[in-house]
Design a binder for these strands. Structure first.
Lengths: 159, 159
DNA sequence: CATCCAGTTCATTCTTGACTGAACTATATG
DNA sequence: CATATAGTTCAGTCAAGAATGAACTGGATG
């Protein structure tokens, strides 16, 4: 438990990668995130990551760029050291989740457009109208939802 | 507005298809849903759908099966008529959204597994632990969230 | 300056799965 | 019964994009 063997660790990394793969993300991207969640130390060079998950330098380069640009992974550099180290952002999962939920705004926008196209009150627009009401409601729920999370987190730190 | 021209309609169908494509769903699947949201009448045969969105009989057959099996589309049949008509389910978007949110339970399960692997209280598990707390909390929020939706909907019908 | 190596870029390979045509099954109609 | 057509199935085609090897860039070191 203090030191889980590599095989278990890698199996777990595959589990994490599987989560992302279901949403169409490349396996390697998911593996990197999975590895950065459990590796020791938390900071790893591209080479270390590549060895752990068996991926090429080129793949690492591409994927690390995507992950850092999207804010899920942070880079650590030291003067006099060409090597860049990567660490999962503390809020990576929060951000992933928030973005997934925020994507629902896209649905609401499309239903809104549909209403304009068919006429807000036309009988033909009923299907679009029903969906639009649901997405609008959900969107309004999301802000207070994340407010509650922030509040809860705040309380935990100062009990 | 009463009768939007075909070009606008098809452009809109592509918008809807785009929403689904972002999650890795085939374009045709999204087009079918999009078309069934705006078509007149709401019931359409596979042939009608195929003509509208320019897809083959074979594609229609496969996709209609997937969509009906997952409960997003309902079939309508009439005695003495070999043709099956399809209609979008009234709760299709609700179901799609609920399933998307429910998928977050998968994340929670994986973080739970991670904690068992690394040891709940070990410093090394901190990253997984933080994520697990967030997903657990979110999962607990979802039930009351959908309860509120049911309640709101109920009130609308009986003011 | 020469060397070494981290990291990037790009052309290429390869896998995956969406989509279709065509053959086939089954049901309604004259 | 013969015909026409709705719907299924399946082998084959094709495109998208994930992953890589190899060539290249640039900073650190002796």
């Amino acid at each position: 438990m203090a030191d889980p063997d590599d095989q278990e660790l890698l199996a777990y990394v595959e589990d994490v990668a599987g989560l992302f793969a279901r949403d169409g993300l490349p396996l390697i991207t998911g593996r990197i995130i999975g590895w950065l969640m459990v590796c020791d130390p938390p900071e790893q060079s591209a080479q270390q990551i590549g060895q752990a998950i068996q991926a090429s330098k080129a793949s690492l380069s591409t994927n690390m760029r995507v992950l850092t640009e999207s804010g899920f992974v942070r880079t650590i550099t030291r003067p006099g050291d060409r090597v860049t180290y990567y660490r999962i952002d503390d809020d990576a999962w929060l951000q992933i989740t928030r973005r997934r939920l925020a994507a629902l705004s896209g649905f609401r926008d499309v239903t809104a457009k549909g209403l304009r196209l068919l006429g807000e009150d036309s009988p033909r627009a009923r299907r679009v109208r029903d969906a639009h009401e649901m997405f609008s409601w959900l969107d309004r729920e999301l802000t207070p939802l994340w407010d509650r999370w922030a509040e809860m987190r705040h309380k935990e730190k100062e009990p």
